[in-house]
Write a protein that binds this DNA or RNA. Sequence first.
DNA 1: GCACGAAGTCGAAGCGCTTCGACGATCGAA
DNA 2: TTCGATCGTCGAAGCGCTTCGACTTCGTGC
Lengths: 334, 334
Amino acid sequence: MVKITDVARRAGVSPSTVSYALSGKRPISDETRRRVEAAARDLGYRPHAARALAGGEPNVLALAAPLRAGVHVPVVMRLVVSVVTTARAHDHDVLLLTQEEAEAGLSRAVDTASVGGLLLTDVELHDPRLPRLRSLDRPSVLIGVPARAYGLTCVDLDFRAAGEACVNHLAELGHRTVALVGSPPEVYLRRTAYAHHLMHGFTTAATRHGLASSVHPGGPDPATAPRLAERLLHEHPALTAVVVHNEPLLAPLSAAFEHLGLRIPADLSVMAVCPDDLATTPRVPVTSVSLPADELGAHAVDLLIRKLHGTPVPETTLLAPRLTERASTSRRTA
Amino acid sequence: MVKITDVARRAGVSPSTVSYALSGKRPISDETRRRVEAAARDLGYRPHAARALAGGEPNVLALAAPLRAGVHVPVVMRLVVSVVTTARAHDHDVLLLTQEEAEAGLSRAVDTASVGGLLLTDVELHDPRLPRLRSLDRPSVLIGVPARAYGLTCVDLDFRAAGEACVNHLAELGHRTVALVGSPPEVYLRRTAYAHHLMHGFTTAATRHGLASSVHPGGPDPATAPRLAERLLHEHPALTAVVVHNEPLLAPLSAAFEHLGLRIPADLSVMAVCPDDLATTPRVPVTSVSLPADELGAHAVDLLIRKLHGTPVPETTLLAPRLTERASTSRRTA
DNA sequence: GCACGAAGTCGAAGCGCTTCGACGATCGAA
DNA sequence: TTCGATCGTCGAAGCGCTTCGACTTCGTGC
């Protein structure tokens, strides 16, 4: 392993000069800097973790991504990838924490490895990790907005507005009875923030528009789609529009409705809240509010990096929902 | 932050005694050890990364999981989770590296953070990361078996045997014309190890049994399933059995065949190589060779930890394929 | 021509921890 | 009783790096 003294010797300067030349924290003559840089390059010098010890900036972020039951894996994965990629762009690596020891894991990560900041996903309204998080004096960013966000930095899609946007769209199209097919029950039982906010927005907007509305957690298993479709139609005969906030169910549910003889959108309008590419999977492309997992991850990391630099950042950043009309929604005809 | 001197002061001993008491590397009287442990507990002491600097064991593993096009995300995620979980059980954390800078990332990880060992997934037959890996003198484990595995430690499902097992099973059932629906083309273009080995096993066994066989890369998009089903039947009129090694395509492809009027297994036997729970997704549960992602991740970490401890480990570990008969295969009747 | 500040460099200290070499105490064996 | 071995503990060194406080040159203004 090539160390800073090796570089110093080769460049004919002292270690501290190498440090300054490489970090730019003190003025160094062009001549010297060039020699140092050349030496570093020739030797393949890469600074060692000791940097963190000696007061250098830590360059690892911890990502707490508990993969809990009921979350759609590909979406989480996209988030993870965008986090890692963005972190790399800022010259940081990512330490991955999962379910196990969620709370203790945070503390451990903070001082065991040279973790500079924390990123939490799958945030619950009353997330048990928050007290620990507040007590740790490390910058952190939540991907998701808990009930009490005071003093925390949060980013998320504005799920409440997303729910409202769906209902507004359907109300404008003249629909009077709408249903939300949401995440699996366990997601609501945990009071997962995003699911809660979306449902809240959906219900509120429906009430405001005077629509009849109902909410149905959907199983994660696509095989349950046909049964669910039947149940919806049976329990709500006047139903003319469905909002699906459940990725694995979207395509099979659309198919199931068509199987039951409903034409989309003529007989039933379908909307979704999901990543854009999923919205085009069903036979009829689905009008949807985009779930920008990549953007969320990138934004979260950007904020965290800013906090690491001591730049003040907004407390809660909500990405405005983007609704894209596709072929699955139309004016109510029935 | 609580440091070792704090604990030492509170326990009324010197820092070195604390270190020894906690690590057990030298005999310490019960009395003293208890006091030290109590002090550490009271103060909430957790050792800092400096440990690595001073010659302690590094406790971070790097997981290089390039999420390349065409791989089935949920399977990778399962692998990742089992790696993280198992690593935690061994008191290690996991640094996640993705696509970007695959090769440089390895080197960086090794000396920037206190990474003790490396785990590579998505291994290609002639993986460009291998030279770098060999030059780094850090223990590593590949999840996947490249063409030249000499001097490396690899773990994987025995995909070759898996391919053979499928064909053997079908041959025993009297099938004479079989097809393999494989991973997306890009996976083969990269010469991804697992896909290659499975195809190889499939083809070899088919030849040995004198079966007519064909191989068809399958798109990742479920929507392409109906077309693919038609094409298969059209190009191979005598086809009576299909092996699917393509998770997202399994259910839609089964459905597509049934849609075309084929009864499974009466008219067409279907097999899969996939995680067990996916095999039960299609209407007719599919006879399958299990893809034990959890086991693979756990095993890989176990091996890596053993290597970190200096224990010799086998060069290549191949998990024997486990074939489970379900309702989708039967004796050829046609 | 001199004092003074800026530019450029260096040496040394210290980050939190482990580990090596001592050192006193205790104990059994001679 | 004495000697050596063992046990339990401590102090100090050092891991690779950053940073602070000098110190030495210069160039500039008067």
